[in-house]
Amino acid sequence: MNHLDLLTFARGSALNWALMIFAAGVVLRLFEIFGLSRKPDLARPRSDSPGSGWRTMLSRSIPPQGMLKRDPVTYIGGYVFHLGLLLAIFFFAPHIEFFRSMTGLHWPNLPTALVDASVVAAIAALGVLLAHRLNNKVKRMLSGSGDYLAWAVTLLPLLTGYMAYHHLLFEYALMLSLHIFSVELLLVLLPFTKLFHTFSVFVSRWYNGDFFGRKGVAS
């Protein structure tokens, strides 16, 4: 199999399967979560603040008072990583073409050099966060193989994408294939690892905000 064939396979059947497992997995996991249901809260809420859950979905991205100072590495590393990843996924022109072909939606892209810089930042942040995970006793205790697996499968698309763009290690078509395969690995694993927080974070933040909001506390 030559490199173009590999690329065609990566963009073809491999991608199809990965996307299908991803879609089925995400829906399945959401069913798993919502299917458990919960009892309605019969206590009269302090005030009608119907937006508290939705607000917390966003506001929880901001560190509460004093927390940034307590663990700057996690917060700053987390910001840099997530923003870098977000820019790379959604604002690199070729990626937008992917979304356009799947959904028909498209939006303006960023200059490639800017995306490139954000990828470098995200990779560096991942490195720092791994070192932090290994050095911080709480993180180390909490971490299992799943955490390191999630770290690795998140790093790979960033790394292979960067290497493909800069023609490092392998020739472009091969590296591009590896990049796409790494994304497929990520797609397949996402619903079934902690990476599912990509989706569930909005659910958990909503409940948190709603629970606190009923008690009159902005969380």
Binding site: F34, R70, T74, N136, A150, S200, V203, Y207
Partner: peptide, 26 residues
């Protein structure tokens, strides 16, 4: 006792350890 909020909480945890930083005992 496990309900939707708890399932979403466990699904979301990324083992960042920030809860320890907020904990009096830690």
């Amino acid at each position: 006792v496990i309900d939707t909020p708890i399932a979403s909480y466990f699904s979301s945890c990324v083992h960042c350890g920030l809860c320890a930083e907020a904990c009096l005992f830690y």
